[in-house]
Design a protein around this nucleic acid. Structure first.
Lengths: 233, 233
DNA sequence: GCCGATCCTTGATGCAGATCAATGTCGGCC
DNA sequence: GGCCGACATTGATCTGCATCAAGGATCGGC
């Protein structure tokens, strides 16, 4: 029982205001649908409505499936993220776990209905939307105007900001996604991703250990190579 | 005086709930900053905060400026759109008029502060964010995975949805942007845009008249050529 | 600790779209 | 209505990344 409510507690901690009335807290808990995904498992939404998904643990990719084999990864999401999954009748997007993950799934309309009286929650939701929109716009720049090297540098810096562990003036990354998934996110092939990593490694800017450990030795150099002058994020 | 308040009336019509208390209506009117832009003029934000911008008339492009000459157009916006312009200290985005335009500029924090008590407004704002996010995600697909022909077809269909005038089973478009701007939006060069339009014209799928009139003779054929299976938008 | 499958790296080649270079056309202005 | 400058089209060539094709590393399972 305590076990079962843990993801919701994490959600409340991360998203809900601390002064939320108990009744509303319970209501939100009641409409939250828990969902455990094994690595590479697809989140299958019950019903056809727009969903809000909180990632309590693990990580996931939001994928747009195209005709044939083509897939574009719209974004990666990590523990603590609260994202909107559009109604599947309008866009064929799916959420797929990168590693074992625990999710909390809300019907967007139910959630907003309950949150209507609580401006704090709505505002948090707005802030989340703004962050997602900024990331998505950033991605448009990456995909629209950057070359392979700049894309790779931008990707590593973005991951560093979101899941990097700082150590002295280097940053350690444990990437939960494969080279193929990096490529599908950056609009590159797996071969190009691999080559760019090799170039960065040869230039002593990064180190790689095994398949998914990367150490950014010179983040500032990556910044230079990422092109453009986007500050922060 | 009546003249001067007209854009705000349009804003209220499009965005605000009809049962909004008069006091709040006045408050919102008081913090709204009117702004007239001539074609190609840059919207220069007073102050450094995040802004919400309503386009009362005309059209605009949201541009990310890069190192050197590089520019990526993040999106086009038309009369009735309500968009968020991030704080210029974080992203170097600018809003530039495509043709003469009338805007209403709000400080995002002030606006949300006033709207806190009105779930209707906040929810509308959320819906707008969702629409923007969907468009931006769609753009990621276009830029990440589509070829020149598919990009052009997607662009024309998207414009048709937003500013097209249906006539029998054709759609007439009056594009307020130049070939260069189309290219900067699609991650293509002006030459490639031109060539793709020529190909579509030769295939009798579109007609062009002058520099910015386009008639979509066979929207369904464009749909086929736009790749992927995104439904609606 | 070996084995096999999967994932990754590296090299060779091809092509879509960028770039370079003229020429053509529109539309505003006198 | 003709002229001029900006914009658009068309053609020739070049290039970065995709694609094709082998190996090589990593890791989970036994």
């Amino acid at each position: 029982m305590i076990e079962a409510t843990e993801p919701f507690a994490m959600f409340a901690e991360a998203i809900l205001p601390s002064d939320l009335p108990d009744a509303l807290y319970m209501h939100l808990g009641a409409i939250a649908e828990q969902c455990e995904l094994a690595a590479h498992e697809v989140q299958t939404h019950s019903g056809d409505a727009e969903k809000l998904i909180f990632i309590a643990q693990g990580s996931a990719k939001l994928v747009a499936k195209g005709a044939g084999e083509r897939e574009q990864i719209i974004g990666f999401h990590f523990a603590g993220d609260f994202l909107r999954l559009p109604c599947p009748c309008e866009h064929s997007y799916t959420l797929v776990a990168l590693e074992d993950a625990q999710l909390l799934v809300f019907s967007a309309s139910q959630f907003v209905e309950l949150a209507r009286g609580e401006p704090g929650i709505l505002q948090h939701l707005l802030d989340q939307s703004a962050t997602m929109l900024d990331r998505s716009r950033e991605k448009s720049i990456v995909l629209g105007r950057k070359n392979a090297c700049e894309r790779m540098a931008s990707f590593l810096l973005s991951m560093a900001r979101r899941i990097g562990e700082e150590q002295a003036d280097t940053i350690r990354l444990t990437l939960p996604m494969s080279r193929r998934e990096i490529g599908e996110s950056l609009g590159l092939t797996i071969e190009t991703v691999s080559r760019q990593l090799t170039l960065l490694r040869d230039a002593q800017i990064i180190e790689t250990h095994g398949r998914n450990q990367v150490i950014l030795r010179h983040p500032e150099e990556l910044q230079k190579r990422s092109g453009w002058l986007t500050r922060a994020n």
